[in-house]
């Protein structure tokens, strides 16, 4: 595998919602490429017809009764937001 290109790094950073500095991009190009190259080690293993494992418990869909529970203290929840307006959390503009 070749090193990831700068454009590829930018694409992943966009998907990840991460602003990166020029310096970070240059450093990450090599670091991420080394790590991803290491993953190709798994190609040595034949996994044809092998099931995937998502988690290790045998639990299937876990259901519980639809009962009302005490909610979190709303004031404490709201107080954690960086920007608020009364009982509301303020968010930046979504629609242009």
């Amino acid at each position: 595998m070749n090193d990831l290109t700068k454009d590829e790094i930018l694409k992943i950073s966009e998907l990840s919602y991460l602003d990166l500095t020029e310096e970070e991009i240059n450093k990450l190009q090599k670091e991420l490429s080394d790590i991803i190259r290491y993953f190709t080690l798994l190609n040595n293993i034949d996994t044809k017809n092998t099931e995937v494992t998502g988690h290790t418990t045998q639990a299937k869909s876990v259901m519980r009764d639809d009962e009302a529970r005490t909610p979190l203290n709303i004031e404490k929840v709201i107080n954690n937001a960086p920007q608020t307006d009364g009982k509301f959390i303020k968010v930046p503009r979504v629609l242009e």
Binding site: F39, L42, N43, I45, T50, E51, V52, T53
Partner: peptide
């Protein structure tokens, strides 16, 4: 990557 890793996890 991800699917392959989950398969090797099974093994």
């Amino acid at each position: 990557y991800y699917k392959k890793a989950q398969q090797v996890r099974t093994l």
